[in-house]
Nucleic acid binder design. Structure first.
Lengths: 108, 108
DNA sequence: AAAATATATGTTCATTTGTTCATATGTATT
DNA sequence: AATACATATGAACAAATGAACATATATTTT
């Protein structure tokens, strides 16, 4: 059973990396919502405060805030107070890469 | 209002690409489940039939079949009958790329 | 210190999603 | 053709999710 052996090895590898794969799925969960994707996409262009995002996505300020919280918890965005606003921006370049990565699959 | 103008342009860009961004979120939705990620991950190593996947993930054959259906609908896997089995494999290299992309963010 | 402004949080509700169970479909083997 | 085997499908149900509403918190401006 040559092939069976190969399958067993793969099974072991998956089991061994179980937590990492769970974390991977969790990361994609964050990108798996069009509101969040749009927020992230906007932030690749420029930092923005909550009100601005709320205004141009045409959803409640509350909804935006909740989503930003999710994004922040996943270390995808960071925030910084500027005057009376809290300005959000991308945490690092990974976000851009991940978005581009997905885009390639779509636009082919 | 220099910055306001920039925001307006971003808003327009997001609105213009609304469908694409929705599709992007939909794509990520497929990766946003640990069962599916594990299936995809396994398939990067070798093609497999439903029974094998079911066995090593330790979930119902039915559950696997349902998830494979989702994966196929998103053009991430393809299937082919071989004898009495139906063997699934990755549809293209994009899957590998997308997984690697996310991995980088996690393992840092 | 009070009022105004911006953001965050708690709760509720409707919707979506993943799994299991039962069963149907389809192919291979006898 | 009948049986066994592998996969797919449908229904039901529990859990997760995203949005809105109401309200709390925090900072700035007067």
């Amino acid at each position: 059973m040559e092939n069976q052996n190969a399958i067993t090895k793969i099974k072991e590898a998956i089991t061994r990396n179980n937590e990492v794969l769970d974390a991977l799925a969790d990361l994609y969960k964050v990108f798996a919502d069009s509101t969040r994707v749009k927020i992230l996409c906007a932030l690749t262009q420029s930092e923005m405060c909550v009100g601005e995002i709320s205004e141009f996505l045409d959803i409640t300020q509350s909804a935006v805030s909740h989503q930003l919280r999710t994004l922040k918890a996943s270390s995808l965005v960071k925030s910084q107070r500027k005057g009376k606003n809290i300005v959000y921006s991308l945490a690092d370049e990974h976000v851009r890469t991940i978005i581009d990565c997905g885009m390639e699959h779509i636009t082919e």
